[in-house]
Structure formats: structure tokens, C-alpha cells
């Protein structure tokens, strides 16, 4: 196979790829910004003692976790304008979809962290006269958050990988730019390889960091949740 590699064409358009990467990070960042607080709220509601709150919230979380994000994105992108009459850009559709989609996963991370805290901690807080909210804020969450960090970062990695789907609704993220350049230059092998390498360059350090953190938390006997 005498294929002649030519990365020159990729680097001529490298600024476009970088712009795509910035857009990828933008969607990821915004989805985090909305998804994390929403996830915490969903987790607290799912831990409610009242079935009328707990059960519907549980179903919403399960639904978001059990359907492909691509279907969610298409649904929102095509359905929202028809249902509400508001035209939304691919960018907004993406941010909204991934905020909701990731919030369901963050909710499970939060819930896992909260239920991993020993019953004795709730009891001690209760015994000095704290109510449920105070116990949660002062005693349970500060401990739970520490255990959740690795699982949380893993979700961030997954989220960034999932944002590639925005390319399918023509939002100019890294993958979309790569596809465009590949078609224009007839050099898909080089372009897609470089694009993959760029994702790897961002995600691999985070992965390494997660692993180191898990080892450290594991060693001090604090444990982590998944």
C-alpha cells in the first residue's frame, strides 16, 4: 500500500480545527455549568421521603440515562421549534440537550456520594439538633463531594465525548470542522487522525488525573463512588 501521507493540508486549516475545539469546549463548559446544579437538585429530589416527588424525578433521570443522547438531541432540535414556535440554533439545542442529559448522570453521581456516607454521620448531626437541610449542607455534602470527584471527572470526560453529536446538527465543533476539511481536501485519513489526536490530547490528561486521585483517595481509606 503506497499511501503517501500528507499532513500539510491539515495544518493549513489547523486554525479551523482549533476553532472547532474551542466550540467543543464551549458546549461542554456550558452543559457543565447548567448540568451540575441541575443534577444536584435532581439528586436531592430523588432522595426525598415523599413518593410524589421521588418517583417522577426517578423516572425522568432513568429516561435521560436510558435513551441515546443523539435521539434526545434530534428530538429537541426538531421538536422544540414545532411545539413552541421558537426557532433555536444548533448551539442552543446542543447546550440544552447536554445540560439535561448530563444532569441525569451527575444526579446519580451526587446520589451515590450522598448515600455512601455512613448513617452515623446523619445521626450525629441529628443528635446535636440539626435539621435535614443543615445535616446535608454542613455534614453530608462536604464529605460526599470529596468522594465524588473521580466519578464526577469521569462524567466530564464522557460529556465532552458526547458533545461530538452536535456535529450532526451542523454546529461547528471539532468533529464538524474535521469533516468539512476532510471533504474539501480529500484527505480524510490525515484530518480525522489529527482530530482524534486533539480530543485525546485534552481528555487523556484528565483521565490520568482521575486515576491518580482514585489511588490517593483509595490509599487514605476514604474510597470513591461510581
Amino acid at each position: 500500500m503506497g499511501y503517501e501521507w500528507d499532513f500539510g493540508v491539515v495544518f493549513r486549516d489547523f486554525d479551523l480545527l482549533l476553532l472547532g475545539l474551542v466550540n467543543t469546549l464551549k458546549v461542554t463548559g456550558l452543559a457543565l455549568l447548567f448540568g451540575v446544579p441541575l443534577g444536584l437538585i435532581l439528586a436531592l429530589l430523588r432522595l426525598s421521603r415523599h413518593g410524589v416527588i421521588r418517583i417522577p424525578v426517578g423516572i425522568v433521570i432513568e429516561f435521560l440515562r436510558s435513551t441515546p443522547p443523539l435521539v434526545q438531541l434530534f428530538w429537541l432540535f426538531f421538536a422544540l421549534p414545532i411545539l413552541t414556535g421558537i426557532n433555536i440554533t444548533p448551539f442552543i439545542a446542543s447546550v440544552v440537550t447536554f445540560s439535561f442529559q448530563s444532569s441525569a448522570f451527575f444526579a446519580e453521581v451526587f446520589r451515590g456520594g450522598i448515600v455512601s456516607i455512613e448513617k452515623g454521620q446523619w445521626e450525629a448531626a441529628k443528635a446535636i439538633g440539626m435539621d435535614r437541610g443543615q445535616s446535608m449542607r454542613r455534614v453530608i455534602l462536604p464529605q460526599a463531594v470529596k468522594r465524588m470527584i473521580p466519578a464526577f471527572l469521569e462524567r466530564v470526560i464522557e460529556l465532552m465525548k458526547t458533545t461530538t453529536l452536535v456535529a450532526t446538527v451542523s454546529y461547528a465543533d471539532l468533529l464538524y470542522e474535521a469533516n468539512t476539511i476532510a471533504q474539501a481536501t480529500f484527505r480524510p485519513l490525515e484530518v480525522f487522525t489529527v482530530a482524534a489526536a486533539m480530543y485525546f490530547a485534552v481528555l487523556f490528561p484528565v483521565s490520568l488525573f482521575v486515576r491518580r486521585l482514585e489511588r490517593r483517595l483509595g490509599r487514605t481509606g476514604e474510597g470513591t463512588v461510581h
Binding site: 500500500m1 465525548k161 458526547t162 461530538t164 468533529l175 469533516n179 487522525t193 485525546f200 487523556f204 483521565s207
Partner: peptide
């Protein structure tokens, strides 16, 4: 393992569809 875990699945699929055929026998 690291490459496949740290790149998006969609990129992998598109790589195998658009890029790999060029060098595939």
C-alpha cells in the same frame, strides 16, 4: 486502551468509515 477510551466513539466510527478505507486492504 487509552486511545479508545479517550477519544469520542463518533470520531472512531467516522475514522473507520471515512479514513480507514484509504489504507484498508
Amino acid at each position: 486502551v487509552e486511545v479508545f477510551r479517550n477519544t469520542p466513539a463518533l470520531v472512531q466510527i467516522m475514522w473507520f468509515f471515512f479514513a480507514f478505507p484509504i489504507i484498508s486492504p
